[in-house]
Write a protein that binds this DNA or RNA. Sequence first.
DNA 1: GCACGTTTGTCACCGGGTTGTCAACGCCGC
DNA 2: GCGGCGTTGACAACCCGGTGACAAACGTGC
Lengths: 240, 240
Amino acid sequence: MTKARVLVIEDEEALRLALVDALRSEGFDVLEAADGERGLELALSEAPELVLLDLMLPKRDGFSVLRAIREDRLQSAVIVLSARGEEWDRIQGFEFGADDYVVKPFSTRELFGRMRAVLQRIEGKAPGLPAEAGKIPIGEFVVDFSAYTVERKGVRAGLSRKELELLRFLLDHEGQVLDRMRIQDAVWGRGNESTPRTVDMHVLKLRRKLEREPEHPRHILTVHGVGYRFSRTGEDARRS
Amino acid sequence: MTKARVLVIEDEEALRLALVDALRSEGFDVLEAADGERGLELALSEAPELVLLDLMLPKRDGFSVLRAIREDRLQSAVIVLSARGEEWDRIQGFEFGADDYVVKPFSTRELFGRMRAVLQRIEGKAPGLPAEAGKIPIGEFVVDFSAYTVERKGVRAGLSRKELELLRFLLDHEGQVLDRMRIQDAVWGRGNESTPRTVDMHVLKLRRKLEREPEHPRHILTVHGVGYRFSRTGEDARRS
DNA sequence: GCACGTTTGTCACCGGGTTGTCAACGCCGC
DNA sequence: GCGGCGTTGACAACCCGGTGACAAACGTGC
């Protein structure tokens, strides 16, 4: 990929500048806008590969901008940057069409990780289609992120929001061992007070839905004393 | 990499001293600074692996220090220590650019957890994509440190935490003859009470996982009466 | 080469910590 | 109020690290 174009729509000066700097130094071609109106204008006229969109914006809020972008059948991927707050619920599960979202405050590492994942996902996608998360095969299962379902040989199961978010995080970090804290931070948000064991519970639920033999998982693997590791293709859980 | 260098930039005396103590006793090589100017100076001249950076600092605030560090293309990871409170909103922008951040007050446990995570991520982070990070060939095996696995001809085996730590140590000291005490100090921690024979046990386990013929080891070699020696390329353990 | 003492390899097992699983609870939307 | 979901606590199942015992390998002195 040669120099993807990224549009940053963010009103807070300090953050926008920091973002633009960081992106430029990563080799992106960067456009910027400080309000929703200008942002939409640029998005439509320049059709960047990726839009980083703040939700609370002057003139035209992020939701409205996103809707307009989607209505225009623009191919741009959109990553929403949001402060945790009342709009949080509406964001969860990106029911409203974003490809991903990042909660402020976030680190460069996290943002770049998500950007990479999103850009990779839309790469090789049929042109003209909106850049929705789409269907992803996992072993003999197919997960449909926009429909919240998993399917295997015609049998379909629904996924809850948390399950989907957890799965998405695992997918984005396939192959790495992720400790509970890391998972919790990413999926539940930082400063979350709940037990690390909650993660286990959701892993259990996911296993029931996308493992052929939930008691012998091939995709969501346990690394004793450390955390979990995800494998898309599936692995033999062998004894040591 | 044993003994990572950490720079603490924190003006509050009590906290800084506590941090420095705790870090030293964890085996880190610690540098400290009480204001932003001095901190930046040290960061640039010493290029530590990790910087712990307070945001509210005399002379030069944390944000400015962070930017300067980044502009200098320094490889150091930065963890921001911030107080939640009146400046939270401002901080949200400032957090950006850090590898991670910890909200005051924090426990040493939490801080160490994040440090470990960050350092692990940094480790072997070649200037490419992090996809291949942490994969190291050993003979015809490939060890993936971020996945806790060893693979040989498509056959994968999981490594436990201790096994991985031991292997990491051996790898870091390839070619040297290491006596049991040295290994034990490094992997199990100084002042550990367990039998030196425990080392043997784990060597045995490692051999089973990354030797083609565990009974004729080519990588983890015994030096009778002394200890063990590790070889990445593999040696014929044939007598002469 | 042999015998013996020492060092290392290997096994089975135990104890404690970690994870899997269930049932129950509270919350929210309907 | 009902049902789904997220979360928690409790308990069982499991895994891993560590230990002691014994066999095998090694090295030394004869």
